[in-house]
Design a binder for these strands. Structure first.
Lengths: 354, 354
DNA sequence: CTGAAAGCGCTTACAG
DNA sequence: CTGAAAGCGCTTACAG
């Protein structure tokens, strides 16, 4: 490794490689006290123009940059928040992240984030690592169902807002979409177009949104006086293989469905692929919007969530908490929007309904 | 605000609301020295089972969790890296982020990230804020073209790897896609299918990838001995309005194109929408793959980058640097892949070519 | 207007 | 096996 102790300026008080100048170095070079440097760096009043000038020169010459981790230690607050979600790369969560980031930025905070990969142990590990860094607050899309492990943290002042799904066994803020109502309306839409045998393909049953949407499906079917055959409902991992197999099963069984309601963006994408190769048309309404959904044939009818608004709402609530709002836990619910594009308006293909 | 000084256990040494127990508190409660607590917390050897047990009990009783910001201050390294890119929510960058996160996790590091929104000032501000937090390293998709502001940081030991685009005016690592070659091959593909009048719709010319891809377009046209009319080339913001207007202009001008090469995923999505309403078929090859591109009619032929691999490669290089690799700046180039799906194989519609 | 001392919560380097 | 002292780089609380 090269020795950078001596720069082109000779053996000047330039810190060795890997070290950085501190306020103490700046103070020494400018011939002032440490506190005066601190005042200049933080724009505090009470420094003459002349002194300030000397300090600024020393700062530039040494390439000084305040070490915020030291500052954090002393001030208590880190001006950073954590975001834990299922998968940063998922097209639903990516805009949510971006929205949280924007709100954090507006509040002068930095964002630490990570993916739980739908693994409760990994969620916990990540959340606790963020707590150890003393983030001021946390926005969490929970993977697990038990968040009592957060209690010592919240008791110590950590603010937490759950988003997309509520926290488990803990009284905490949550910002959710109207999963029940959205699914109910989407299924009712299929019913209104003449379908009586409608399949539901959802995510794993331990995920709150999956069961809420299933509840919406059942409510719509019940409201229409339609029976639900057990073979029409399938919850489980959203891996394409499983979804493909289940879709094919529902389309070809003894009591084949004429329409599908898919429980999230990943499921919809796979189902669309299966339907594209299927001999007869099958109606489809999907939860979550997809990019280019409007350009498919038929265009895909969806129950859209506003991922960005979910993130923004959660982050804003978090910062209200950090600003001292100590009211009881709040649950906010955002509306979904049915966007009819074609696939949800196809009539039953086999004439057995209506 | 409720007074939690006294818990259900009475006036026990439970820290006041907002405060947290420290190793000192644990040591006092367990009746041992501070260093012994540190040993237990960090799994260092040299503590009897009996002592360790007492310490662990105190930790649990107090809800102690090590404060990593204090640890960081003392150890020098923060075990965190920063990622600055254009837009966390962009379907191209989201998987890149996720890949960086995975590598960070493998190395026990946390990820701080933020979006520059293609604004050089914002990029700089974000990068310097991350430096102030003393991230150990930085992965940056640069928005600006001058990164000399990073010199004091790198001199002090900060590792930086640029990804997707090279840094400007600084000798630094970079991991890029073969933008030139990918675009050249994509355009050559259109030429091979009989097109002579091919439009190029790209991002802003100050973005490295935009000019590299344009260079590839020109190379392919030149290699085929085809002239390039100035009206066939358009670089600028990827806002849908501009792209729509430019696409329509190229399709309807005095010398209309029979094929389009689009410079990135956002441009492609907008162009596909315009072409869907256009009276005659127009061939299209887009840089970057799109979700559901295979299901459109025609399916969209693309030059795909591996965003995830870009992120992984950059992050791995970063950690090699952090592990002491002090070799000269490295530039890695990843291949692109032409995926023929239909839109790029359409023949010229007006019969003026070939 | 300016600065010396103490302290944030840990780890390092020693000493028993 | 155990612990007291010093120090990481700042800010706080005072004192001049």
């Amino acid at each position: 490794m090269p020795d950078r102790t001596r720069g082109p300026n000779g053996p000047f008080p330039r810190p060795r490689y890997g070290a950085r100048p501190t306020m103490k170095d700046v103070a020494a070079r400018a011939g002032v006290g440490l506190k005066t440097v601190s005042r200049v760096v933080n724009g505090e009043p009470g420094v003459t123009a002349e002194t300030e000038h000397r300090v600024r020169e020393a700062i530039t010459a040494l390439g000084f940059r305040r070490n915020d981790s030291a500052r954090v230690l002393r001030k208590g607050r880190t001006a950073s928040i954590g975001l834990v979600l299922e998968d940063l790369a998922d097209p639903f969560y990516a805009p949510l992240s971006r929205a949280v980031e924007e709100v954090a930025r507006d509040h002068g905070a930095l964002l630490l984030n990570g993916s739980s990969a739908e693994d409760p142990a990994r969620e916990r590990e990540l959340v606790l690592a963020l707590c150890a860094r003393r983030v001021d607050g946390l926005v969490v899309v929970p993977a697990g169902g038990d968040h009592r492990y957060l209690e010592p943290e919240t008791a110590a002042g950590l603010a937490t807002v759950f988003v997309d799904r509520p926290g488990g066994l803990i009284a905490a803020d949550a910002v959710l979409s109207d999963n029940f109502g959205g699914a109910r309306d989407g299924v009712a839409h299929l019913v209104a177009h003449g379908h009586r045998r409608i399949g539901f393909l959802g995510d794993q049953p331990r995920i709150h949104t999956a069961t809420e949407r299933l509840r919406g499906y059942r409510a719509a079917m019940a409201a229409a006086g339609l029976p639900v055959d057990a073979s029409w409902v399938s919850l489980g991992p959203t891996a394409p293989d499983r979804v493909r197999a289940e879709t094919e099963r529902m389309l070809t069984g003894p009591s084949p469905v004429t329409a599908l309601f898919t429980g999230n963006n990943r499921v919809t994408a796979t189902a669309v692929r299966v339907l594209a190769r299927h001999p007869r048309p099958v109606a489809l309404v999907g939860f979550d919007d997809l990019e280019l959904a409007d350009l498919l044939t038929p265009a895909v009818t969806v129950v859209a969530q506003d991922a960005s608004r979910l993130g923004r709402t959660a982050a804003e609530l978090l910062f209200r908490r950090l600003d001292g709002d100590a009211g009881p836990p709040r649950h906010e619910e955002l509306p979904t929007r049915l966007i009819a594009r074609g696939s949800g308006e196809l009539p039953p293909a086999d004439g057995t309904s209506g």
